[in-house]
């Protein structure tokens, strides 16, 4: 496929995803209300998909690791622990309690990872992320083991990821994060290009590596924390979408970031539509769909591995 096909392809995918998200699914409610509910849900899916995909691009460049994804610095475990604690202590899922605690957990784990790996390179950062993530996951298991049956179900459901929207205010906050993260990363696209060549070469061409790395990691983690808080853990979008898009857009971040944003948003809206439709009227957690769809697609990409980075 030629790179000239990129814009029409992405535009087509986005339109198809929006149509799928807005006009399919079980009915039973007045049309106007149904459209409003679906609109909110599509808006949430778009925002989360954008955030996860561009955060994946940023982490892969800064950490120079093709496997890096938005949760690589332990953010998802921190958020999950925060959310589980809030559910176990009886905060209602319809209030700010769960997203707030999840965001606090995500921020805490990010700061912990930064503190632990201070003054060391990207590899240490990934290792610290893995270790902090495992420790926090054990904390999560501890909370699960002492939870009531209902708490257990709520925590599990939250962790599997879903795009239900209960009120518009968190959604507005999520879109504010989209503006900050997308704008910040796009403005950092030249730093991202340089950092993808390694920290030494980036310093050699004049990038202030410490500042650039920290600000980009902070933006990526903000994206991950915001998505996790709003919609739970949604795997594979941040890993799979950047790799797929890179093959069409090339590796330069000035093009890759906006292209990944559109593709990530469209992918998650489609995945969420599938989540609503497959076992309708039952809902499948969207995180299950992204893994079931994204995993095999990623393996197909992997078969053409030599082209993954071209």
């Amino acid at each position: 496929m030629s790179r000239r096909a990129l814009v029409p392809l992405l535009a087509g995918a986005l339109l198809a995803a929006l149509a799928l998200g807005l006009f399919t699914g079980p009915g039973g409610l007045p049309d106007e209300l149904l459209l409003r509910l679906r609109l909110l849900r599509v808006a949430q899916g778009l925002a989360a998909g954008i955030l996860l995909a561009v955060a994946g691009c940023a982490f892969q460049a800064v950490l120079q690791n093709v496997l890096a994804e938005p949760y690589v610095l332990g953010v998802s475990s921190g958020a999950a622990l925060g959310a589980a604690l809030s559910i176990a202590f009886g905060l209602s899922p319809f209030s700010w309690g769960i997203p707030g605690c999840a965001a606090a957990g995500a921020a805490g784990s990010f700061l912990l990872v930064l503190a632990v790996s201070r003054g060391m390179g990207g590899a240490a950062l990934i290792l610290a992320g893995v270790v902090v993530g495992s420790v926090l996951s054990s904390g999560l298991l501890l909370v699960l083991s002492v939870s009531s049956a209902e708490g257990l179900r709520n925590i599990t459901w939250w962790m599997l990821g879903n795009l239900d929207v209960f009120s518009t205010r968190p959604l507005i906050l999520l879109w504010a994060c989209v503006v900050v993260v997308l704008g910040g990363l796009w403005l950092s696209s030249r730093e991202l290009d340089a950092l993808s060549l390694g920290e030494e070469r980036a310093a050699g061409v004049g990038v202030d590596v410490r500042t650039a790395r920290l600000s980009i990691l902070a933006l990526g983690t903000l994206a991950a924390a915001a998505t996790v808080s709003a919609a739970g853990i949604i795997p594979f979008v941040g890993l799979f979408v950047p790799h797929m898009v890179r093959r069409l857009s090339g590796s330069r971040h000035a093009r890759l970031i906006p292209a990944a944003a559109v593709a990530g948003g469209a992918f998650l809206v489609v995945a969420d539509s599938l989540a609503r439709l497959v076992l309708s009227p039952r809902q499948v957690p969207v995180g299950v769909v992204t893994a079931l769809v994204g995993g095999p697609l990623f393996l197909i990409l992997l078969r053409g591995r030599t082209r993954l980075w071209r």
Binding site: Q64, R190, D193, A194, S196, L197, G198, G250, W309
Partner: peptide, 19 residues
């Protein structure tokens, strides 16, 4: 060696204009 990034030669050299 240069890491295996998906740049063309020209795109790589353009990174040198950062400063």
């Amino acid at each position: 060696e240069l890491p295996q990034v998906g740049f063309t030669v020209r795109q790589l050299v353009e990174v040198g204009r950062y400063s």
